Amino acid sequence: MEQGTVKWFNAEKGFGFIERENGDDVFVHFSAIQGDGFKSLDEGQAVTFDVEEGQRGPQAANVQKA
């Protein structure tokens, strides 16, 4: 798993971006967030995640709040 920081996340649209430790950004969809209840992330929040190849390039999977 990688570690990163939430760059931004739009809860209304259900997606955002995580900044990886290497400085690259990776797309995150709310469906990739682990846990119960409303799935959202806060700007600046530390997270761990896997990276999978999506239809439009790399995207975060198995996102967990650190």
Rank of each mutant, 00 (worst) to 15 (best):
M1G: 11
E2H: 15
E2K: 14
E2C: 09
E2V: 13
E2F: 15
Q3T: 15
Q3R: 15
Q3A: 11
Q3G: 08
Q3F: 12
Q3D: 07
G4H: 01
G4V: 01
G4F: 00
G4W: 02
G4M: 01
T5I: 11
T5M: 11
T5L: 09
T5H: 11
V6A: 03
V6P: 00
V6R: 00
V6Q: 01
V6M: 04
K7Q: 04
K7T: 04
K7L: 06
K7M: 04
K7D: 01
W8F: 09
W8M: 05
W8Y: 09
W8R: 04
W8E: 02
F9Y: 09
F9S: 02
F9K: 02
N10C: 08
N10P: 02
N10G: 04
N10L: 08
A11T: 14
A11Y: 13
A11V: 15
A11H: 14
A11I: 11
E12N: 13
E12H: 14
E12D: 13
E12W: 13
E12A: 15
K13S: 07
K13C: 07
K13T: 06
K13P: 02
K13V: 08
G14E: 02
G14A: 03
G14Q: 03
G14K: 03
F15Y: 15
F15Q: 04
F15S: 02
F15K: 02
G16C: 02
G16S: 00
F17Y: 07
F17T: 03
F17R: 04
F17N: 02
F17I: 08
F17D: 01
I18D: 00
I18P: 00
E19C: 09
E19L: 15
E19Q: 13
E19V: 14
E19T: 15
R20F: 04
R20T: 07
R20N: 06
E21A: 14
N22M: 11
N22I: 12
G23N: 11
G23A: 10
G23T: 06
D24Q: 14
D24K: 14
D24P: 15
D24V: 15
D25I: 11
D25M: 13
D25G: 05
V26A: 03
V26S: 02
V26M: 08
F27L: 04
F27Q: 02
F27D: 01
F27K: 02
F27N: 02
V28I: 07
H29Q: 03
H29V: 04
H29R: 04
H29K: 03
H29P: 03
H29A: 03
S31P: 03
S31V: 05
A32W: 03
A32R: 05
A32E: 05
A32I: 03
A32F: 04
I33F: 06
I33D: 01
Q34M: 11
Q34A: 12
Q34P: 06
Q34L: 11
Q34K: 12
Q34T: 12
G35Q: 11
G35R: 04
G35N: 08
G35T: 10
G35L: 08
F38D: 08
F38N: 08
F38Y: 12
F38A: 08
K39D: 05
K39R: 12
K39N: 06
K39W: 07
S40V: 13
S40R: 12
S40W: 11
S40M: 10
S40Y: 13
S40T: 15
S40E: 07
L41A: 03
L41H: 02
L41E: 02
L41V: 05
L41W: 04
L41Q: 02
L41C: 03
L41D: 02
D42R: 15
D42W: 10
D42V: 13
D42I: 15
D42N: 11
E43V: 14
E43C: 06
E43Y: 15
E43A: 09
E43Q: 15
E43M: 15
E43L: 13
E43R: 15
G44C: 06
G44I: 03
G44T: 04
G44N: 07
G44W: 05
Q45Y: 05
A46Y: 12
A46C: 09
A46T: 15
A46D: 10
A46V: 13
A46N: 10
V47N: 01
T48M: 11
T48Q: 09
T48C: 07
T48Y: 11
F49E: 00
D50W: 14
D50T: 15
D50A: 11
D50E: 13
V51T: 07
V51F: 07
V51E: 04
V51P: 03
V51D: 02
V51H: 04
V51Q: 04
E52H: 13
E53F: 15
E53P: 13
E53S: 11
E53C: 09
E53W: 15
G54I: 04
G54P: 04
G54T: 13
G54V: 06
Q55A: 13
Q55H: 14
R56Y: 15
R56Q: 11
R56P: 06
R56D: 06
G57I: 04
G57N: 04
P58T: 11
P58R: 10
P58E: 06
Q59A: 08
Q59V: 12
Q59R: 09
A60P: 01
A60E: 00
A60I: 02
A60C: 05
A61F: 13
A61E: 06
N62A: 05
N62L: 05
N62E: 03
V63W: 00
V63C: 04
V63K: 00
V63S: 01
Q64M: 11
Q64R: 14
Q64S: 11
Q64C: 08
K65G: 10
K65H: 11
K65V: 14
K65D: 08
K65F: 12
K65S: 10
A66G: 14
A66F: 11
A66T: 12
A66Q: 13
A66K: 14
